[in-house]
């Protein structure tokens, strides 16, 4: 038994918001791959679970007319990975999703839940940050949209207000020929949380490079855009690595020391830059 709590499975969003907002200690259940572990350990003991998987509209996985993508809060990582348009338009996002946990867990774990869990190591966070994604939110005071860049408030904390439910992740239409990539350093070649992760997106027409990284600060971090026109891949890689290290504040934990993270982070950044810009990898 994972504790004593009530369970509700609303089918419309207004009801889900009401249940979640009215109950002093309620938790949203989507995939449950993080929540159920916390319930089992006793770290989290809510009185009510609001299962949002059957709420109308939250299973949507829609490509808009200009290529923008909306991923409902009940969409699993494997459903995202099986979505051809995602793999074609956003390969960095697909790489990040494929790197998470195991096939069984990816059948449960959701895209939105990976953000809402607000782990500093969340692999989808850097991949979504470089795409300019945002989180659609419904709450007692109505709906709003939070850019992923403003979604994380700290370790395991988001900027969702009391009673608000994340309903979807929105990725804007990609710039023409947008390239994206994701790399992750793990303790072992297999299923593990990131020691460090790095995502990049390059718009070839403008030469603007966006980079984000995780597991090396209290939250995933998006760097200021880097202009690459007229620069070699090596020069861009060096500049990006320096900017990344300046923004990083890694700690030592069970997965790696701060020193190791500082050593490996610039390597991942240079490799992502090399993959996006071409030229030799380091």
């Amino acid at each position: 038994m994972l504790g004593r709590f009530d369970y509700e499975r609303p089918t419309n969003l207004a009801e889900a918001v009401r249940l979640f907002a009215e109950t002093p200690s309620a938790a949203i259940l989507a995939g449950g791959t993080d929540l159920l572990v916390e319930l089992r350990s006793g770290r989290h003991a809510p009185r009510l679970l609001v299962d949002v998987k059957r709420v109308d509209g939250l299973r949507r996985l829609d490509v808009g007319p200009r290529g923008d993508l909306t991923i409902g809060a009940a969409v699993s990582l494997n459903e995202l990975l099986e979505h051809a348009a995602t793999r074609w338009s956003f390969p960095g996002l697909a790489q990040a999703a494929a790197s998470i946990a195991t096939y069984q867990l990816r059948n449960r774990a959701t895209v939105t839940g990976n953000l809402c869990n607000a782990s500093p190591a969340a692999d989808l966070a850097p991949a979504l940050l470089v795409l300019g994604a945002a989180v659609g939110v419904a709450g007692p005071r109505g709906a709003r949209v939070i850019p992923v860049a403003e979604f994380f408030a700290g370790v395991k904390r988001t900027t969702l207000r009391r009673g608000e439910i994340a309903t979807e992740v929105r990725i804007p239409a990609p710039e023409p020929e947008l390239r994206s990539a994701f790399l992750k350093q793990q303790r072992l070649r297999g299923h593990d949380l990131a020691v460090a992760n790095v995502a990049g997106a390059l718009a070839p027409s403008t030469g603007t490079l966006r980079l984000a990284f995780g597991s090396c600060a209290p939250t995933p971090i998006l760097l200021a855009p880097i202009e690459t026109k007229g620069m070699s891949a090596v020069a861009v890689g060096a500049a990006a690595a320096a900017a990344t290290l300046a923004a990083a504040s890694p700690i030592s934990d069970v997965r790696a020391s701060a020193e190791y993270r500082r050593a490996v982070l610039p390597v991942l950044v240079r490799r992502v830059v090399a993959e996006l810009l071409g030229g030799g990898a380091t």
Binding site: L29, L36, D51, K53, A101, Q104, L105, N107, R108
Partner: peptide, 28 residues
Amino acid sequence: GIGECGACTVLLDGKPVTACLVLAVEAD
């Protein structure tokens, strides 16, 4: 019991999942 080992893998609606990380009520 925390979704790491796969010993409790079953198919839910045809898809492999770890039964330790699914509530019985979710399989309703």
